[in-house]
Design a protein around this nucleic acid. Structure first.
Length: 411
RNA sequence: GUGGACGUAGCUCAGCUGGUAGAGCUCCUGGUUGUGGUCCAGGCGGUCGCCGGUUCGAAUCCGGUCGUCCACCCCA
């Protein structure tokens, strides 16, 4: 509060304690996806605005009101990426990845930007990790993707998870269904709550989530998209369910699962955790078979997901990690200080983490620094080359030889 | 974009009905001319978010504004 400047609304500094927790999540992601044969990809932080307009969909909230859009000096409209899938599809097309063995399995991590009012688990700049499996329409790809998200969250030990699974069918089936649902809602309009009535036009599916009593009664008899799936879509969904059952991944079929991006079709899924507050979704995704073609590439099926790093951390409620150091070098006379940096480098080359005081403190101050740096050992060097090695936790101290430091500290 | 709560030292907070700021923790120094984590003493640190109004006088009342948090919408 003291300074003139503050991090912009909805952004946050990742202080060392948080930075480490953050790295832990991303590191786990890399481990889990790496051993599944995924390779990393990194795309720019901003793209042509039109990529998102077409890829994510003009009618979505993201495009309508949540994008950070600006013009560069050449008058091009650019947008800070609000999500990762459209950029990766763009890269896939641009670099002719259809010539690679299919499917192409990609993993990414990074910052994303959405201009929304911040609240618990929602920020204007946030971090996601995610994967895309591009080039296979098989339910095996769906199952693999979902199992991987499950494995990732399990490895992190995220508690109280629930997997919601649904299918949106083909775009045509979905459109037909929405028309049917809208007219059904219209036929019983008088029984619906006011809010729901207002929203029928924009998002009739939301009516399923209402806790209004009259609305709930109406929705119990409402037609379900899952019941309207045609043959192939239905088979696909059944097959995905079989594969998940066989893999021992538990889920709830959620006929009302909605995704905020236009490109989804067939399988959609989301992991939720109720200790997050209003933003309970930790990660989710789905199949987007039409997207690559829509962006000008060859007709290519694909599926992927993204998970929010901040939300995972919120669910984990991980304790801050204290700093740790193998050895702290202290000295008794200023004449010894000159030898310290070189000695530290030597020991560090042997793989030992070494620190020393950088503020010209007296011995007492140096010991205090050692303590705060989380040092397990402190070596006190005297002008006559004698060394006292102190074990910080117990306070035990003994004479040691300079050449033995590395081996003693290493165990 | 809408609604609610809040905004005093780096952090957590106190400061009743107005008389121009305080605690604990942290940090620095000393008690210990070569020894940390306990203890004791001292010190650094605040335009009381900002602007305006009421008043002899405002951290305290009023208005506005900015910001934070939470919720709605929607989503990671």
């Amino acid at each position: 509060m003291a300074g003139e400047f503050q991090a912009p609304r909805g952004t946050a500094d990742l202080l060392p304690e948080n930075e480490e927790a953050h790295r832990f999540v991303v590191g786990t992601f890399r481990k889990v996806t790496g051993r599944a044969g995924f390779r990393s990809i990194e795309t720019p932080a901003f793209e042509d605005t039109a990529l998102f307009q077409r890829g994510v969909g003009d009618s979505t909230d993201i495009v309508r009101k949540e994008m950070f859009t600006f013009e560069d000096k050449g008058g091009r409209s650019l947008t800070l990426r609000p999500e990762g899938t459209a950029p990766i599809c763009r890269a896939w097309i641009e670099h002719g990845m259809n010539k690679l063995p299919q499917p192409v399995k990609l993993a990414y991590e990074g910052s994303f930007f959405r201009h929304e009012r911040p609240q618990a688990g929602r920020y204007r700049q946030f971090h996601q990790v995610g994967i895309e499996v591009i080039g296979s329409g098989s339910p095996l790809a769906d199952a693999e993707a979902i199992c991987l998200l499950d494995a990732f969250l399990a490895e992190l030990e995220v508690p109280d998870l629930e997997l919601h699974l649904g299918s949106l069918g083909s775009p045509e089936a979905r459109q037909e269904y929405l028309t049917e649902l809208t007219s059904y809602l219209a036929s019983r309009e008088s029984e619906l709550s006011e809010e729901v009535r207002d929203r029928v036009g924009s998002n009739p599916l939301r009516a399923f989530d209402s806790d209004d009593e009259g609305t709930s009664r109406v929705m119990e008899e409402a037609p379900l998209l899952l019941d309207r799936l045609d043959g192939e879509d239905r088979e696909h969904f059944e097959r995905v369910r079989e594969l998940l059952d066989a893999a021992g991944v538990g889920y709830t079929v959620d006929p009302t699962l909605v995704r905020g991006l236009d490109y989804y079709g067939r399988t959609v899924f989301a992991f939720t955790c109720d200790r997050l507050g209003a933003q309970s979704e930790i990660g989710g995704g789905g199949r987007y078979d039409g997207l690559i073609a829509r962006l000008g590439g060859p007709d290519t099926p694909a599926i992927g997901w993204a998970a929010g790093v901040e939300r995972i951390l919120l669910a984990l409620d991980r304790e801050a990690v204290a700093p740790e150091l193998d050895l702290f070098l202290a000295w008794t006379e200023d004449s010894v200080a000159g030898r310290i940096p070189g000695l530290a480098s030597e020991l560090r080359e042997k793989g030992i983490s070494v620190g020393f005081d950088l503020a010209e403190r007296n011995l007492k101050g140096q010991l205090k620094q050692a303590d705060r740096a989380g040092a397990r050992w402190t070596a006190i060097l005297a002008a006559d080359d004698s060394v006292e090695l102190k074990e910080m936790e117990t306070g035990d101290q003994r004479a040691a030889d300079l050449t033995d430091l590395a081996s003693i500290v290493a165990d």
